[in-house]
Amino acid sequence: MKFVFDLDGTICFKGQPVSESLLSSLEKLVGMGHEIIFASARPIRDLLPVLHERFHHYPMIGGNGAIVANRGEIISTICFEDQTIGRVTQLLKKYNVTYLIDSDWDYAYTGPADHPILNNLDPQRRAKKVKLEQLQSIVKILMLTANNMKAAEEQLKNIDVVVHAHGNEGILDISPKGIDKWSGLQQLGVKEGEYIAFGNDANDITMFQHAMHSIMIGHSEQLATFSSEQLVLDEEIEKNLVQRLGEWGDSNIKSEMTRII
Rank of each mutant, 00 (worst) to 15 (best):
M1Y: 07
K2Y: 14
F3C: 09
F3K: 06
D8S: 13
D8C: 06
G9Q: 02
F13T: 10
K14H: 15
V18R: 01
E20R: 15
L23F: 07
L23V: 12
G31Y: 15
A39V: 14
A41W: 04
V50E: 09
H57S: 08
G62Y: 07
N64K: 03
A66N: 09
A66V: 03
I67K: 10
V68E: 12
G72W: 07
T77F: 02
F80L: 05
Q83K: 03
T89G: 07
L92S: 11
L92K: 01
K93F: 06
K94M: 12
N96Y: 03
V97W: 00
I101W: 00
T110G: 08
P112F: 13
D114A: 11
P123Q: 07
P123S: 00
R125C: 13
R125E: 10
R126N: 04
V130F: 12
Q134C: 15
V139W: 08
I141G: 01
I141S: 09
L142G: 06
L144F: 14
L144T: 11
N158F: 06
A165Q: 08
A165H: 12
G167D: 15
N168I: 09
G170C: 09
I171N: 07
P176M: 00
D180S: 06
L188G: 13
G193K: 01
F198V: 03
G199E: 15
N200E: 07
D201E: 15
A202G: 07
I205A: 00
M207K: 01
F208N: 05
A211R: 01
M216L: 04
I217S: 00
H219K: 00
S220R: 01
Q222W: 00
Q222K: 03
Q222T: 09
Q222H: 12
L223N: 02
L223C: 04
L223D: 05
F226S: 09
V232K: 12
E235W: 02
E236M: 14
K239C: 15
V242Y: 04
W248Q: 12
G249P: 15
G249H: 10
D250R: 14
D250W: 09
S251G: 14
